[in-house]
């Protein structure tokens, strides 16, 4: 169990973390998700002991570790640009943590060699022990960095934008591999990402951060299906944000009624594009005009305009598009499957 208790950190005038609290359960893989400057990397570095918080405490397994230096925390850190030791070959990189160890836990050199070999196999780099980091591809370096961090059997593994510097295909393979590895080894891990797809696919739990604060903590489906704040709505996937008037628990958007809203007055309704259903023209339902139809592989994105000029984005399947024979300028009826209303302008 790793606990972050009301941690604050600022750099000059910039508030990187503002009273952030979080607890990470044993064996969980947690994603810190947020735009750049949201404080996620700072939080990761504070967990590792590479940065000291101005306020607040860090507890590892119930013991206060706030004052503990990075070298005594037994927390593995995989850097965004891997930070492999460039003058050492791959085997020496992986063995580093074992060789600098002192006292009775120090392994003899035969045991170190054996462990390095096991790790090389684990990260599927068996034949490359003698290579130097500059002779490896990005994905291979990433796996070396991971093996090096795992060698010291950390109680927590931290990864800073682990897939950020890789190209799309390698990235996909590597994140599935990381997830499998995590499940097999039963590690506790935290990784930083600004890619929502990555967070939703890999993590058990997602922590959405913005401007040094935590916006929401939840499982990927909780985060995606019931965002707690307008920020989370906007940050995870596409969303229509429509200004509306709320009265008596109902939000009115030109001809559309949406349940929701607790405070009367101005509000903003958030509707995911796939919750905007387009139907054959029907007198019982509000109308809209199709302004744009874009085919994106199996998906179709359509932009429709309500009579008052409000634009909505809709996502439908190829099938639905063909059945409606959707085209520009066409009149359709629309139905909102789901929407969430927040008070105010939703910024």
């Amino acid at each position: 169990m790793i606990e972050v208790d009301a941690v604050s950190k600022h750099f000059g005038d910039f508030m990187a973390l503002d009273r952030v609290s979080l607890s990470i359960g044993q064996g969980k893989l947690v994603a810190l998700l947020g735009p750049s400057g949201s404080g996620k990397t700072t939080l990761l570095r504070i967990l590792a002991g590479l940065e000291q918080p101005d306020l607040g405490r860090i507890r590892l397994g119930g013991v206060d570790a706030t004052g503990l230096g990075a070298r005594d925390r037994r927390i593995g850190f995989v850097f965004q640009h891997y930070a492999l030791f460039r003058h050492m070959n791959i085997a020496a990189n992986i063995a580093f943590g074992l060789k600098v160890r002192k006292g009775p836990q120090r392994l003899n050199s035969a045991m170190i060699d054996e462990k390095v070999n096991t790790l090389l196999d684990l990260v599927q780099l068996g034949g490359l022990a003698g290579r130097y980091p500059s002779q490896l591809s990005g994905g291979q370096r990433q796996r070396v960095a991971l093996a090096r961090a795992l060698a010291v059997e950390p109680r927590l593994l931290l990864l800073d934008e682990p897939f950020g510097a890789l190209d799309a295909q390698v990235r996909k393979d590597l994140r599935r591999w990381l997830r499998r590895l995590h499940d097999e080894m039963g590690l506790t891990g935290v990784f930083v990402t600004h890619d929502q797809e990555e967070a939703l696919e890999v993590a058990d739990e997602v922590v959405v951060m913005n401007k040094g604060r935590i916006e929401q903590i939840g499982t990927p489906s909780e985060i995606y299906d019931s965002p707690a704040t307008p920020f989370v709505y906007r940050f995870l996937g596409n969303v229509n944000a429509v200004a509306c008037n709320v009265s008596g628990g109902n939000a009115r958007i030109e001809g559309l009624h949406v349940a929701g809203g607790t405070v009367d007055g101005r509000g903003t309704a958030f509707i995911r594009p796939h919750d905007v259903e387009l139907l054959e023209l029907s007198p019982d339902l509000p109308q809209a005009t199709v302004r744009l139809v874009t085919v994106l592989g199996p998906l179709v994105r359509a932009e429709v305009v309500l009579p008052d000029g409000t634009a909505l984005e809709s996502e439908l399947t190829r099938d639905q598009k063909d059945r409606l024979d959707l085209r520009r300028g066409q009149e359709v009826s629309i139905f909102l499957r789901k929407a969430k209303v927040f008070v105010g302008d939703g910024a």
Partner: peptide
């Protein structure tokens, strides 16, 4: 970063410098 990596792997400041 390499120094920080060495630190998280348990190396002291002096060893980090030498190694």
């Amino acid at each position: 970063e390499e120094e920080e990596a060495a630190l998280t792997l348990g190396a002291s400041g002096l060893r980090t410098f030498w190694l």
